[in-house]
């Protein structure tokens, strides 16, 4: 059996365990041998994006130690998966690091590209809008990008279309950044909040009940704005939708 190491980003482990549980259950449902190594922490991206990639050796070493033994590593965050793929490095075992990085997948692309999933036993009878995280989109190419003249495709949409009762609603700006941007969200607070507000408005106006994404960090930022404005629209990680059986009563947070 294929062994899969589950990499849960630090902020999801701490703040959004339900999205992580949904990811785990979803993968287990595919008859994979899924293991969550207990000594994992963080991909190191917050350091690197702040200019301190030279401080990420500790994170890199831990990642290599935790995940080298698996056939695949799956992560329910496009941003963290991209960071590992692009920047996993090691002082004395760079070849192993590069090989391991090539086995790292974001959840959606793992389902569509490796498992090549054709059907899902999921039901979510709601109006849903998809937020493309920039790293999933422009880094991992999970869907066609609005700037490029290229054929249309969308891996997350393909999966969402397999969910019973789910209605995908369209946005005015299909793939504009939400403004989270890691530490950008506090160091450039004014612009970050305004970007988030504009993004959220687009979703709300579209009639969406749930904003979903393959990146919980964007959702955390948008959730913060929705809640501040007492909006009825909620956020939900895509894994929770794909793993939802008894949809009407789903409580995304607990």
């Amino acid at each position: 059996m294929m062994t899969v190491g589950l990499f849960i980003p630090c902020y999801m482990d701490q703040l959004y365990p339900n999205a992580a549980i949904a990811t785990l259950e979803l993968l287990e449902g595919l008859s994979l041998d899924v293991v969550y190594p207990l000594h994992q922490t963080c991909c190191g991206q917050p350091l690197a994006n702040s200019g301190f990639s030279h401080l990420t050796q500790g994170c890199n070493a831990l990642f290599i130690e935790n995940f080298s033994r698996f056939d695949y590593v799956v992560c329910p965050s496009g941003s963290c998966a991209l960071h590992i793929k692009e920047h996993l490095s090691s002082l004395n075992q760079q070849e192993d690091a590069t090989a391991l990085a090539s086995r790292v997948y974001e959840l959606v692309e793992f389902l569509t590209d490796v498992i090549k999933i054709q059907a899902l036993d999921a039901s979510f009878p709601h109006k849903v809008s998809l937020h493309h995280s920039c790293h999933s989109l422009r880094g991992l190419y999970l869907a066609q990008m609005s700037e490029l003249s290229s054929p249309t495709f969308s891996k997350p949409n393909d999966l969402l279309n397999m969910v019973d009762g789910l209605e995908l609603v369209k946005l005015e700006r299909s793939d504009e950044c939400c403004g989270f941007g890691g530490t950008f969200c506090v160091f450039e607070e004014a612009v970050s909040a305004k970007m988030g507000k504009d993004r959220v408005d687009d979703h709300v106006v579209s009639g969406s009940e749930y904003i979903t994404s393959s990146d919980m960090s964007c959702l955390m930022h948008m959730e913060g704005i929705l809640k501040r404005n007492h909006s009825a629209t909620k956020v939900i990680h895509i894994a929770e939708i794909l793993n939802s059986k008894s949809a009407p009563n789903i409580e995304p947070k607990g």
């Binding site: 909040a193 988030g196 959730e223 704005i225």
Partner: peptide, 11 residues
């Protein structure tokens, strides 16, 4: 963070 956003609830 909280100038325009709520903090996430901690489980």
């Amino acid at each position: 963070w909280s100038d325009h956003r709520e903090l996430p609830e901690a489980p």
